[in-house]
Design a protein around this nucleic acid. Structure first.
Lengths: 191, 191, 191, 191
DNA sequence: TATGAATGAGTATTCATTCAT
DNA sequence: TATGAATGAATACTCATTCAT
């Protein structure tokens, strides 16, 4: 049930269609057609459209997390780690515009509320990388002593807006500008 | 423009329903019912659902602009003006959660792209307050010499995320924290 | 109630709109607008849309009848009278394309059935011109001895089709061709 | 083209309802109900109401053409062929009153204009039976030398009117009268 | 008589989901 | 598991008609 080809085809088709046309512009029938399966087949793998959407989000978040963890400079200082984290997310967004647009939609929909909560307040279970980074940064008095959600907003608020405008083609960011943006973000959270 | 009560009732009903349930979760019939008018009556005032939505957005933007302009310290220094601008927007959002949620939806919808462009790249016509502020700040070497869209992202990216979380009830911001946030945002754009 | 200007304006507006767009493409509100009156005003003169339509038909039929009667060669022989009648109707249609198109719509709609009956079977009361002409023609053994409806179909069937195609711009009839057509029609009914 | 039963049921239901009540008097929901299918099912077979209507017309025209071609006396003289053609059409109309009424509606609607043009001016591609008949008749100097549209009007104008009145029950045509009518029509076009 | 704002029943069409195969 | 035909509730919008002024 986990690694069938059809399942992946459906996820991919749904991802692309929703990215481009939104949740309401991506009928199940169209997703099925694009995935090359029957309309009913989707329901063999997902209980409902909602569940399909939630699963896509889960997968994308996982991918971003993996990207962050890969080559994460655990041993470097706070700033370097922060920079790596921001840049990785930024680059992931602009090199995966389809993923970005899906996540943006998801984020700004009823589905998104729960996601939000987790990220903002901090997961109950194992703390995520960002959480740890902020905690250490505060301890080392390198970054401002503020609640986690504040650092989150200061770091990712600008990145999301810039990525969005880039992905929509409204602006054209080069590597210099991306670094400049992250430097500015660092100025916001550093002590 | 006609100041009939029904027109306002319709606008208010639509605003509230869309804020809470999104564009697709706010059928015209429900809007009509909530506004206490017949289903057809909406079309006496607005040509289509789209036009109704666009008009709501127009009104809300106007209100925010007015709030910013009111008591805007034109003669004070850059930082003070920046602070006033950010704080006013911030406060408007959290004291008008319904307006905020509507604007968020609008912003992240096909409607929003054009709005975006204007804001980000700078209006062709008369420059807006934020545009002027940034330009002067750069001239006076008080804020970083970066494109307008960068300052926009750095300033409003965090504010929007914080406002959203506050409005959704995920966090509870007090006045101290709001000032703290804006101070941090200032650190991001200041030279 | 009979000769108000507004009444005529409404009739004219309705005639033109229905001619061009059909019964269903001519909303009462549009008729009112075109007539330069309020939407409700129409109902001061006509009980319903149906009644308005029926009245237009009545007026147009009256006009055609008047056109036929004018200069009708009561003293000339059957053929000449027949020719005059056909030609007058034909010319009326192609010089009043709006009237023609209205009548065609009316004819081919539920309204038209009653009209039909009268024309075809012969009016109960005073016989109309065509009826008298056919009756005399049969008595004089100049035209075929057939029921009235047969002569009606043979005479006006072709005329209506030709007029329609001319009015729609599919063909372009000149005077010679019109005379040719009526001659042929005469061949059909003459003995 | 798929020969599902439902498709045929829908076509039949639509044909009957439109025949009786016109395009606007036959809502899709009523068609569905009469066909014994769900409202959405119609859209599995036809993209829109328009397409459904056009398809019905296509089928009916095909049927009439088949009726004409069947037993068409290709080797007999012009008059006999003309008579066969007219009589077949005539009989088809009065034995298929529902088809006739549908076609009449179709003919006198926006859909019908293109059909008209083809019939009247003559098809660009392969000439139809009527076209060939007229051409030969003119060559053999048996029928009048006139444009095709004239013969069309002279032949079918009367037939359509007679069929209509018969179908509406306003007159009652017997075989003798039908032959009489076609004889008269022949008199109109013969030399 | 004249108005036009207001109505709400009615329409074509969409789409998530089901189920017999 | 896989299908896709079938469903019917839901939606934006239209328009003849009414009625308070």
């Amino acid at each position: 049930m986990k690694n069938s080809n059809k399942r992946d085809d459906i996820l991919q088709a749904a991802l692309e269609l929703i990215s481009e046309h939104g949740f309401h512009g991506a009928p199940m029938s169209t997703i099925a057609e694009k995935a090359g399966v029957g309309a009913g087949t989707i329901y063999c793998y997902f209980k409902s459209k909602d569940e399909l959407i939630i699963e896509i989000n889960r997968i994308l978040e996982e991918k971003i997390l993996l990207a962050i963890e890969k080559n994460y400079p655990f041993n470097k200082d706070i700033k370097e780690r922060f920079f790596h984290l921001c840049k990785t997310v930024f680059m992931y967004f602009i090199t995966h515009p389809i993923h970005f647009r899906f996540l943006e939609q998801y984020f700004h929909s009823p589905y998104g509320v729960s996601v939000h909560k987790e990220r903002i307040v901090g997961t109950a279970g194992e703390p995520n990388i960002f959480q740890k980074l902020v905690k250490q940064g505060i301890e080392q008095k390198v970054i401002k002593d503020m609640p986690l959600f504040m650092h989150f907003a200061l770091a990712f608020g600008p990145i999301i807006i810039l990525a969005r405008n880039h992905v929509l083609g409204l602006i054209k960011l080069d590597n210099v500008q991306i670094n400049q943006a992250i430097e500015a973000v660092w100025d916001a959270i550093k002590k």
